[in-house]
């Protein structure tokens, strides 16, 4: 049986000329196109997340009365509508912010709880004098700066979010001041705060 195979191979050996060259080229090209067409279609769909843009919603996180000017951080959830592919979650917690109002200040500072190092949730226990990240033990002072400066694992201070105070009236002559923040998601691991795109 193997002798017969060898004979076949001998007979089919081609001689080089222009016609066979084009034949070979055509074979390679058509074969490659046939295989690559589905692959390209798949890769385009695969790359689609690259065209998704991150949004930075304006979110009402607290009433000003919940943030006394005692310089102590308070944690508030960031609740807004959130879409994940085919599902829309109304009023979903998408993160957390710390609001700190220094004595005498009218406007609180807002820090996102996401650690600039690797994105863990920075914790704060009432009474402590530092924010502490549970993952790689970064620590931050209550003004958001790194406790040990450049020796800290985190490459930068905690990320501040833009704050806006809005006054709403309740119809019955009472007025309330709300704290709104622009909830920006920052890239982790860089010295500068770069918003995620």
């Amino acid at each position: 049986m193997s002798d017969k195979k060898a004979n076949d191979a001998k007979i089919k050996t081609v001689s080089w000329n222009r016609r066979t060259f084009f034949e070979m080229l055509a074979t390679v090209v058509t074969g490659a196109v046939a295989i690559l067409t589905p692959l390209v279609a798949g890769v385009i769909a695969f790359l689609s997340p690259l065209f998704k843009k991150n949004s930075s919603p304006q979110v009402r996180v607290a009433l000003l009365s919940q943030v006394p000017d005692d310089g102590m951080p308070r944690s508030f959830p960031v609740v807004t509508d959130h879409e994940d592919a085919w599902t829309k979650y109304p009023e979903q917690r998408i993160g957390s912010v710390y609001l700190v109002r220094q004595p005498g200040e009218s406007e609180p500072m807002a820090f996102t709880a996401k650690c600039p190092h690797a994105g863990c949730f920075i914790g704060f226990k009432p009474g402590d004098d530092l924010f502490r990240c549970p993952c790689h033990t970064s620590a931050f002072k209550l003004d958001g700066s790194r406790a040990r400066g450049d020796e800290e694992v985190s490459p930068r201070d905690m990320d501040r979010l833009p704050v806006q105070l809005r006054t709403v009236s309740a119809g019955d002559d009472t007025e309330t001041t709300e704290v709104w923040v622009e909830f920006i998601d920052f890239q982790t691991g860089h010295k500068e705060a770069i918003p995620s795109v």
Partner: peptide, 26 residues
């Protein structure tokens, strides 16, 4: 998140890995 710190293409790699800007279905 660490992968997103890879030089130059980090953020894109993260997006491709997690199928979007946030963790979810994809």
């Amino acid at each position: 998140n660490l992968a997103s710190q890879a030089p130059v293409v980090g953020p894109e790699i993260r997006k491709l890995a997690i199928g979007g800007t946030d963790y979810g279905h994809h």
